[in-house]
Design a protein around this nucleic acid. Structure first.
Lengths: 202, 202
DNA sequence: CGACCCGCATACGAACTGTAGGCGAAGCCT
DNA sequence: AGGCTTCGCCTACAGTTCGTATGCGGGTCG
């Protein structure tokens, strides 16, 4: 180890990371509005001064958490999509499989709450901007390409993307409160696949 | 007029109504979290004491606004559905038309914010319970009946209901930010109808 | 007609948030 | 190497908002 003592920039990143980690955990558990900044600072071992210094206010901290969550999920889904494409080479099939993986991901309570529940409520319009810039945009591009190839019905790809996304989101909220033996998630996947069947061609 | 002076019960209802009306307007304009209870009480001409007396806290007042909004929209859509059924007698067609009307309704900013944005954020699980009890439940029953008749693909009607609802909601959020000449609402309706086409039979 | 009850206002205490100022240590320059 | 500067972070303060407890006035009923 060349530098056993941290530099100032490293220390700043470390405290910011610890704040984000605490926020991700507490926000996921109790909701973004229900946790006080005092509790957040205490949980990460710093004072509220550090929090305001790095993120300004609660919305700023939440936006950092939100961006990290979007990026992590986007990378997972991108990797899955590329793996599918490398094996099967079926664009429409890979597209659908990625959406099914998306459904599985947002069934997890923490991810669902941050991305789909608190995100729009806290960030408002900014939330969809972030989503469009990171992941959602490439999904729409892929859809547009498949429309051009005649693989998907000739409709506005942006509208289709929002429709698919909303359908998946609501199925996730429903499937998340599963009763034992009910197996809502399997039904959600089946219904989602039926929806896709109506949009595919060839 | 037999009673020019209001009775105590009438006065209580009047103040509660005025609070709900102010809340509906201010919540719709600025969001439920952004308006203080002081401003709310001042707007309706009473003090915060009356507000707490009738609704307990902000969530209680919002729930009253939310219930009223759900009921109003539900009645509108029910009336439309019955009128369609009386004329054409086509269950699947009336069902789809009702959803298109639902899309048009929630494009309106106030309704959309209260029902779809602040509702889940403020009430959480209670919001879907209210929706299920008022309107959404009958929609699912109708869907179940059409499945039994072979008019709709044989899938879980509850899952289909949530899928249709989520698709419509997200299309509404997208269509709400329309640029002049873009006509997103028309594209949203077309995409929604394409989705329905994949679920109909016969 | 008098006692009770209820709707509502007022007053108070507590919690939370954002900002300003200050301290100590890392970084830079000569 | 040593002093000045910069920056991350803490502490202290003030403003705002919320929930509760208490009091008053006027309907309501025996």
């Amino acid at each position: 180890m060349s530098t056993p003592r941290k530099t100032r920039a490293e220390a700043a990143l470390a405290t910011a990371d610890r704040l984000i980690a605490s926020a991700r955990r507490l926000f996921a558990a109790h909701g973004a509005a229900a946790v006080s900044l005092d509790a957040l600072a205490a949980d990460s071992g710093v004072t509220r001064g550090a929090l305001h210094h790095h993120f300004g206010n609660r919305a700023g901290l939440f936006e950092a958490v939100f961006r990290r969550e979007v990026q992590a999920l986007g990378q997972r889904l991108d990797a899955l999509w590329e793996a599918e494409m490398a094996v099967a080479g079926d664009r429409w099939g890979s597209f659908r499989h990625t959406f099914h993986a998306y459904l599985d991901a947002v069934v997890e309570p923490g991810t669902r709450r941050i991305l789909l529940q608190d995100g729009p409520a806290v960030l408002g319009e900014t939330a969809v901007d972030i989503l469009l810039a990171d992941g959602f945009g490439t999904m729409v591009d892929d859809l547009r390409g498949m429309v051009a190839l005649g693989r998907v019905v000739p409709l506005d790809p942006v509208a289709m993307g929002h429709l698919f996304n909303g359908a998946t989101i609501n199925l996730a909220f429903w499937a998340a409160e599963d009763a034992p033996g009910e197996d809502r998630l399997a039904r959600a996947h089946a219904t989602l696949e039926a929806m896709f069947a109506g949009f595919g061609r060839g």
